[in-house]
Design a protein around this nucleic acid. Structure first.
Length: 545
RNA sequence: UGGGCUAUAGCCAAGUGGUUAAGGCAUCGGACUUUGACUCCGACAACGGUGGUUCGAAUCCACCUAGCCCAGCCA
């Protein structure tokens, strides 16, 4: 369920009053890094707003600064957004509008609203003034239109060195809004652009480029984050004075911040370099690629983002809220199979050693369409170490103990009779007996078991590596340095078993009965299955200790 | 000390002059259960502060407090 938000209110009003007959949104990433969960709000909201009101949604790369950008990121971003199932109607590049932007800059010059400035970067900074005092006008501010036009053309033609001149808008050096103090709109910067190669040596600045990009595409509602609120007067100024026929409206909302996560590029790079995480797609990171690898379904992210809405306030959302949307989505979507992560062998002494049988077991009782499988059972099975305690500790204990009878789900009741330990005193083998009368599906109800536990038939079990992830950061005090907050034990690798004869598609999500949701990792091979724990099942079981 | 914003429970978030102040997450009870899951019932607590306007204020006004953003030839 989506929270109502102020942007929907604006859109609905614009549609009602006839200001727009159709809306158009866009997501404008700069291809200078990878997307993370924080971006999901902007991507998904722009997408669903366009869908909900029958409009269009563009993916537009805001590639106006080649020294920071790379085609590699273009591909990564496209892959991530496609994975998120936010289908763009058009794929555009700001760099395709360079010619148009250049012309619009000339419109400004012709109107006496832009000038070429020869001040050095230091001087420009100096002339800009500061937060509390007004700036000073550049001595080049009153060059003639002709001179400006000629100089600007020469800038484009490469007559000047990088940084030697800039084109600035002529607005107001005394404005309390620093963005209005004659902002730079073009800089000279010779660098290879992933799209336009070496065609240009001047590149437009964001404040100038962005409104023009939006206007060219006929974007009606241009959503961005709060820090651009101060830029809105400039945005409107450029749309107006460059005489764009289409007038987009910039609307700011609060970024989606997730508490206690590493998202900074430098920080992640350090974690990767230090070997703390295994890469940019490590399941402990909230990069979209990390979430994908962890097995998070894209629709769970949609539901999460919709539940959060589109507020103007900026809070920090706890990641465990996403967990609930993951479980909620996978609850009916995932097949449920048996796996044992920390196995103990159980020998069923009254079951013939050479016998083995198949028991009909549905994959998901809440979604019959998922079908069933023939679950294998024999005289030796594995159960979870946690599911056995020699002495039943209290009445609440709903698992196996000596002399206690539990049901192996989908199979039979078993009663533990004897335990064998290894040299270090750990339970090695449990000897049990089963009661053939209690076969699942037989309708047996003469007595109740002390609980229901899951198992894997040892004879057909498939070994599997299971990776358990916990929070990357344990310490929530963000005033401490990152390295002191890192949880050194955020990843645990277990060698367990999953039931045999399950066909497993790459990246398929499963519920491992009573354990949680897991998905097959890319590292899986023909002979070695690897699973990531996406999220554990909830548990109201309070363990002592 | 300039400008732009924000403030509703442990977390997120509706609400725009009249509501018992939605909902979700979390938490705590209980029922049910072949997953200590799911489901279902129940509990739970909030309008940053102080004044003012009004018959009536979370909503309007004033002042205060706290937090965020802005002085890149980044976006």
């Amino acid at each position: 369920m989506e929270n109502k938000n102020f942007i929907r209110t604006i859109i609905e009003k614009d549609l009602e009053t006839g200001k727009h007959t159709q809306i158009a949104t866009r997501f404008p990433p700069e291809p200078n890094g990878l997307l993370h969960l924080g971006h999901a709000r902007a991507i998904i909201m722009n997408y669903i707003l366009s869908k909900d009101y029958g409009g269009t949604f563009n993916l537009r790369f805001d590639d106006t600064n080649p020294i920071k950008e790379d085609a590699m990121f273009v591909e990564g971003i496209k892959r991530d957004i496609a994975w998120l199932e936010c289908h763009w109607d058009n794929l555009y590049y700001a760099s395709n509008y360079f010619e148009e932007m250049y012309k619009r800059a000339k419109v400004l010059i012709e109107k006496g609203l832009a000038y070429v400035c020869d001040l050095t970067p230091e001087e420009i900074k100096d002339f800009r003034g500061d937060l509390t005092s007004p700036g000073k006008e550049s001595p080049y501010r009153n060059r003639s239109v002709d001179e400006n036009m000629e100089l600007f053309e020469r800038m484009k033609h490469g007559d000047f060195k990088d940084g030697e001149k800039v084109l600035r808008a002529k607005i107001d050096m005394a404005s309390p809004n620093i963005n209005m103090r004659d902002p730079i709109i073009y800089r000279i910067q010779r660098s290879y652009h992933h799209n336009t190669k070496n065609d240009w040596c001047i590149y437009p600045m964001y404040d100038f480029a962005h409104p023009i990009e939006d206007a060219i595409e006929g974007i009606t509602h241009s959503l961005c984050s709060l820090e651009f609120e101060d830029h809105r007067p400039l945005y409107d100024w450029f749309v107006k004075h460059t005489e764009m026929e289409s007038v987009p409206r910039q609307i700011e909302f609060g970024k989606l911040k997730i508490a206690n996560q590493v998202i900074g590029k430098r920080a992640i790079r350090k974690l990767v370099d230090d070997g703390v995480v295994d890469g940019w797609d490590d399941p402990r990171l909230i990069t979209l690629s990390g979430l994908r690898r962890r097995g998070v379904p894209p629709m769970a992210i949609h539901n999460f983002v919709k539940a959060l809405g589109l507020p103007k306030s900026e809070g920090e959302t706890e990641l465990h809220m996403l967990d609930e949307y993951i479980r909620d989505y996978l609850k009916t979507e995932a097949r449920r199979i048996n796996a044992v992560i920390d196995p103990i062998k159980v020998v069923i002494t009254n079951y013939p050693e050479d016998k083995s049988e198949r028991l009909e077991a549905p994959y998901n009782r809440e979604n019959e369409a998922l079908g069933s499988r023939a679950l294998s059972f024999s005289s030796e099975v594995y159960i979870e170490r946690d599911d056995f305690l020699e002495q039943k500790p209290n009445k609440k204990w709903k698992r196996l103990s000596l002399g206690i009878e539990v049901r192996l789900m989908h199979a039979y009741f078993i009663k533990a009779n004897e335990v064998k330990y290894d040299e270090s005193g750990n339970v090695q083998t449990i000897y049990a007996t089963y009661d053939p009368e209690t076969k699942s599906g037989s309708g047996f109800n003469a007595r109740k078991p002390n609980g229901n536990i899951h198992f894997v038939d040892a004879k057909t079990a498939q070994p599997a590596e299971i990776r358990i992830y916990e929070d990357l950061m344990h310490d929530t005090d963000d005033s401490k340095p990152l390295e002191d907050r890192i949880n050194k034990h955020s990843k645990t690798i277990k060698q367990g078993f999953i039931e045999g004869d399950i066909d497993i598609a790459k990246n398929e999500a499963f519920q491992f009965t009573r354990l949680g949701y897991f998905s097959a990792d890319d590292d899986s091979t023909q002979d070695k299955l690897v699973f990531n724990r996406t999220v554990a099942l909830k548990s109201s079981f309070k363990r002592k200790k």
